[in-house]
Design a protein around this nucleic acid. Structure first.
Lengths: 214, 214
DNA sequence: ACGTGTGAACCGATTCACAGCA
DNA sequence: TGCTGTGAATCGGTTCACACGT
């Protein structure tokens, strides 16, 4: 339980941890048992130094002169990230994107389960998409606290996003993966990660041009 | 044309530029004509200083004591980002997520148009989703160069992503928005932005926990 | 000798503070 | 006075270099 040293851990370190975990699971499938920082980062655009530094925030886990036991490291990372047991999430906004995500299989590999979806369209309520039942948004306050869910995926139209997000917070949600193209203004204690396709494309356009220009 | 000073511009600055642009378009709809760095950043989790610093990389554009002309600034940012004229993109992999993106309306606001989609499933080829026609991946080499496209959205299964990405590069694609949960290894001259839902959720889980723990 | 773990040095990004213009 | 633009100072993250365990 005791945190070794009180050091601030960069957000990028956490993001990379998730990346390492993804790679390790693949390496495990390929029957690797022991791996070095060099090997694991070879295809990751991350330096071995960076990898070891990232791990060092949470204390030693490898064997000097040997490397890391793959199973060990997977478990270690899962524990750090908090996904060593089932993580229940909800999704709000069952439009095209929301529906697609309800059927996304990649979540399961990492212990994530979407346990309920919400929408305001009466047509959709009661239906099941990808094993997930759709409820009326107005029932969120009743249902969400019961489910013991901490995270929500937000795929509602931009104009409703702020309002729905506030409602989610009042239901006890602590983290939001926001696909709506607006900046959510919520308490600092709520973590928001934004995924905005248009923004990403603009960034890409800039760099694609720049490389061309030299 | 002449770049004012040769300074390195942080990637985060570019990402924020896209954010500013999104906000400005909303402010324009609300009939704002002049705006200060304070006003525009009020709801963006960005400091006014940061905003002005970001802009400063590309030379003066506001009026001291007054602020920024909204129209002016929009045009300025569009030019910087390279989206002041139509940007044609393609999408590869018309699964659930790919289909959802083909119908995503948010792209048009920023001059992005998906001009073609590709898949290997014979069932899908020839169909039209959201005004976009689906072609056989094997025709990419023929079609893509003709279209004059620089960017691609990659929504194929993880196991095909690397191979398809390489093909895209050989067709002249310079930037890839990658939704497949793998790290693509391509020439350094190709820009890749990864969007991995599972990774994002893991990061969220960590921080949601951490806040709780204090 | 090999590979991890980590303090120290370095580098880049953010924040500060203020000069200058409307 | 109000607000921009920007060099200077600060802060934080990455890289380096090496001590230590195997």
């Amino acid at each position: 339980m005791g945190r070794k040293k009180i050091r601030k851990i960069p957000q990028e370190t956490i993001r990379r941890m998730a990346l390492y975990l993804r790679s390790l699971k693949k390496l495990k499938e390929q029957k690797f048992q022991i791996i070095s920082s060099n090997k694991i980062t070879a295809y990751l655009n991350v330096s071995p130094d960076q990898f070891r530094k990232d791990l060092s925030y949470f204390g030693p886990v490898g064997k000097p002169g040997v490397g890391y036991r793959v199973n060990n490291l997977i478990h270690h990372l899962e524990k750090i990230l908090g996904i060593d047991r089932e993580c229940r999430i909800i999704l709000v906004g069952v439009g095209k994107l929301g529906s697609a995500l309800l059927g996304y299989p990649g979540f399961l590999n990492f212990n994530f389960t979407i346990v309920a979806a919400f929408d305001s369209d009466k047509e959709k309520i009661g239906k099941i998409i990808g094993h997930v039942k759709i409820y009326d948004v107005s029932e969120m306050a009743k249902i969400v606290p019961r489910l013991g869910v901490q995270l929500a995926i937000l795929t509602v139209p931009a104009e409703n996003a702020q309002q729905v997000a506030e409602k989610l917070v009042s239901c006890g949600i602590r983290g939001i993966l926001n696909f709506a193209p607006v900046n959510l203004n919520l308490s600092q204690t709520i973590r928001v990660l934004n995924v905005d396709m248009a923004t990403e494309l603009m960034t890409l356009t800039y760099f694609a041009k720049k490389i061309l220009a030299g």
